[in-house]
Design a binder for these strands. Structure first.
Length: 267
DNA sequence: ATGGTCGCTTGGCGA
């Protein structure tokens, strides 16, 4: 089973990119963030035609929005609000994993957090930390409910030194500050969650999934960050067989600033 | 140190 996470930054603008993804990778499940469209205008029929008739969508006008697309039927799908906001940052669904049993998939778009890494001065950063805190409590409560769980998404945090182009230069840059990394580590420990990408790609090796639009040519200095993650619960750890980071997608015409991250599970 | 580019939609916000 192939599961892809991708911050698409407008699903309507990038339908051809999703088609391209299906040809290159052929995921069974695609988890999208920043669809930037209300649920009523989500291009569900076009995506069904690409082979993903089973969909769970939580969209709002202009900002955020998450979706799960699947070749296989979804059960018990839904969305959940955090921090008292209805801002479409979490969608979940259960998929039949065959003899492995049901698999619960959670797709998150964690707040980016603004520019100033001080929760006293910047309410967006405070929101990001609060979001982490709330889902950490939630994941503790969920851990006994379903054995097979997957958490994916644009978590907007690059935890390891090798998850950014320069650890030293990004220590005060939102996405790599010690307080965020500590928060993400707490969340991971609370699952507990296995970082599937780092099970395959050694932690010593740099790997990125996002490169800023604000650079003339993203390939020149390769100043990226690994903001997009695929985590699995312990029963799925020994089923992780492959990771694909589709760097090429950053060079497609009118690209998203994120590329698809795919994990294959041998169920 | 600052500004750089996108996508939502048309003024300005969020990333």
């Amino acid at each position: 089973m192939k599961i892809t996470t991708w911050n698409i930054n407008s699903v309507r603008l990038r339908l051809p990119h999703i088609e391209h993804l299906t040809k290159e990778i052929a995921p069974d499940i695609i988890c999208l963030q920043e669809i930037k469209v209300i649920t009523d205008l989500f291009p569900g029929e076009d995506l069904a035609a690409l082979g993903y008739p089973h969909q769970a969508v939580a969209g709002m006008k202009g900002y955020n929005g998450v979706a799960i697309l699947s070749r296989l039927p979804l059960t018990k799908s839904g969305t959940k609000d955090w921090c008292g906001k209805q801002d479409c940052r979490h969608i979940f669904a259960t998929i039949d994993g065959g003899k492995a049993g049901p698999i619960e998939i959670h797709n998150f778009y964690i707040p980016a957090g603004g520019d100033e890494p001080d929760p006293e001065k910047n309410e967006k950063f405070a929101h990001k930390l609060q979001f982490l805190k709330e889902i950490t409590k939630w994941t503790k409560d969920r851990r006994k409910k379903t054995a097979n769980r997957v958490l994916v998404g644009d978590l907007n945090i690059a935890p390891l030194e090798t998850d950014v182009w320069s650890h030293k230069q990004l220590l005060k840059v939102v996405s790599h500050t010690p307080v965020e990394v500590a928060g993400l580590n707490k969340l991971q420990a609370a699952g507990p969650w296995i970082d599937a990408v780092r099970e395959i790609i050694p932690p010593e090796e740099q790997v990125f999934s996002w490169w800023s639009y604000r650079s003339k040519d993203w390939t020149i200095n390769d100043r990226g960050r690994r903001l997009d993650h695929v985590w699995v619960s312990e029963p799925l750890q020994d089923k992780i067989s492959e990771v694909q980071i589709l760097r090429d997608a950053r060079s497609w015409e009118k690209p998203s600033d994120h590329v698809p991250v795919t994990v294959t599970l041998n169920l």
